[in-house]
Every structure is written in C-alpha cells, then in structure tokens.
C-alpha cells in the first residue's frame, strides 16, 4: 500500500545513524589536532599554540624506531603463520561435513570469543611452566593464535562463494591436486587471502592485551604507547606516534576492503 514511501528514511533514523558515525569518527580526528599542540604537560583544549616540532622529535627517538621494528617483525611472521593455518582450516571446514565440525569451528573462533586477557595469561603461565624465556617468538606465538581467526573468516567466506564444480572441472581436464590449487583455487581465493593477511597484520601490529603478557621486557609499538599513557613523558610525542599508527593500520584496512569488494563478483558462484 505504502511501499512508495519506504525508500526515504525517516529523519529521526537518518539523524541517529549520522550521529552514530560522527561518534565513531570525531574522537580520532581530535588526535590530529593534539599532535601539533605546543602544550606539553596537559591535554588543554583548545591548544594554546601549534608547532611541527614533535614530528622531528619523534624522528630522532631511537626507542620509537626500535618499537616500530619489533612490531613490524612480529606482525609479518604472525601473518605468514596465520595465512597458512587459517587457509587450511577454512578449506577443511568449507569442503566437508564431518564429525565434530561445529566444535572445530568453535575452537577456531575461541581465541577472539574469549577475552584476550585469558589468551595472554594462559600463554604466560605455559611459558613459565615450561621455562621458555621471553623473546620475539613468544610474542609471535600469541599473535598468530588470534590472527588465524581473521584469515579463517575471510577465507571461509570466499570458499563458500566459490563453487566446487570448478575444482572438479580442473581435475576432469587432467590437472592434479597441486595444479588445481595453483591455477584454479588460488586465483579464486587469492584476494580474500591478501585481505585476510592485511587485516591480520593490522591486528597484530596493534595488539596490546596479549602482548603485555608475552613480551617480557620487550616493547612493541603498542606497548611503548601504553607505557606513555600510564606514565606520560612528552605527551605530544605520543600523539604523533598515534597518528603514525592510524596511518599504518588504515592503509591495509582500505586495501583489504577494496580487495574483498571486487571479489564479490568473481569466483564462478553462479555456474
């Protein structure tokens, strides 16, 4: 009867939706303002003056560079592990129905469904029980565990959209399993894996809760930031680092978005 009226949203709905988006974005923009403030001791708003000097201060701080390098190293290794394991898991769960499949998929999402502090403290107690000293690898171990989920989710979504008939066709035409994987499966899931890998990288680069338990005395970039938050030394320096972190995580997220969006139209789902 009134189906013509349903296409434009009621203004109240529109206002709440836009208000919600502003709530999500304005706080991040405020950090940008604070990176240029001349006020060093407090969070005074509006800033009494503006300066570019904090960017050069950050550039010369060796502790920040060390933290960035450690974060990049950990995130790269964790992403590679997560890519391999997450793809295997997604391939298995999407291909077949088998006994305990629901429980296995529950196990895969458990590291993000349970609070991160549980992952952290259990890893730590396991390290202490087994006398494993803290190192880059202990951080990687924790990160890879929850990065698997991200890759798994992305790959699973893509596997569900690609049809098995393509794989059968490839086999019928004489390709063996590895060739099928290389020439048929990989091109179909490639962009989803890339997207999952980027998100895993962003997640690991940013992780702090698990890392505080597995890092010991090492400082990844988020740990460095956390220390600055608890015991501030030069507040604007933290602001500049925050902007850097926003930039580093936004690029892979945007890229991942465009990769998976284009993927919606490929994959021979309709065949």
């Amino acid at each position: 009867m009134r189906s013509d009226g349903t296409r434009s949203a009621p203004w109240a709905l529109k206002a709440t939706a836009i208000g919600g988006l502003l709530f999500l974005h304005v706080p991040l923009l405020i950090i940008f303002v604070y990176a240029f403030t001349t006020e060093e001791k407090s969070y005074q708003f509006p800033p009494p003056g503006y300066t570019l000097k904090w960017f050069s201060v950050v550039w010369e701080r060796q502790d920040i560079w060390n933290a960035i390098w450690l974060s990049v190293k950990v995130a790269s290794i964790a992403t590679v592990i997560a890519l391999v394991l997450g793809t295997c898991a997604a391939a298995a769960v999407s291909r077949a129905r088998f006994f305990g499949r629901d429980y296995i998929s529950l196990l895969f999402i458990l590291p993000i469904a349970l609070p991160g502090i549980i992952t952290g403290i259990s890893l730590r107690s396991a390290f202490s029980v087994m006398d494993i000293p803290f190192s880059t690898w202990t951080i990687v171990l924790g990160h890879a565990t929850f990065c698997i989920v991200v890759v798994y989710n992305n790959a699973l979504a893509r596997f569900r959209r690609t049809s098995g008939s393509m794989i059968e066709a490839s086999m019928d035409l004489g390709a063996d399993g590895f060739q099928t994987f290389r020439h048929v499966v990989l091109p179909q899931i490639g962009s989803a894996l890339l997207a999952g890998g980027m998100l895993a990288f962003a997640l690991s680069f940013d992780e702090v809760i698990v890392t505080t338990f597995t890092a010991g005395q090492q400082a990844t970039l988020p740990i460095w930031m956390l220390n600055e938050l608890i015991r501030p030394r030069q507040r604007p320096v933290t602001n500049v680092v925050a902007i850097f972190v926003i930039a580093v995580t936004f690029i892979p997220i945007l890229a991942a978005y465009y990769l998976t969006r284009d993927g919606e139209h490929t994959g021979g789902a309709g065949k």
């Binding site: 991040l28 950090i31 940013d206 925050a242 972190v245 997220i253």
Partner: peptide
C-alpha cells in the same frame, strides 16, 4: 564502520583520555 573497528585500540582509548 570498518575503519574505526580496525584502527588502533590504544589510539582510540587515548583519544578519549584527551
């Protein structure tokens, strides 16, 4: 919606501290 979801957790907390 995706951008704030994936952007740095600590940075978000920090923004609110400000």
């Amino acid at each position: 919606i995706m951008l704030p979801l994936w952007s740095s957790y600590l940075v978000k907390v920090y923004a609110w501290k400000l």
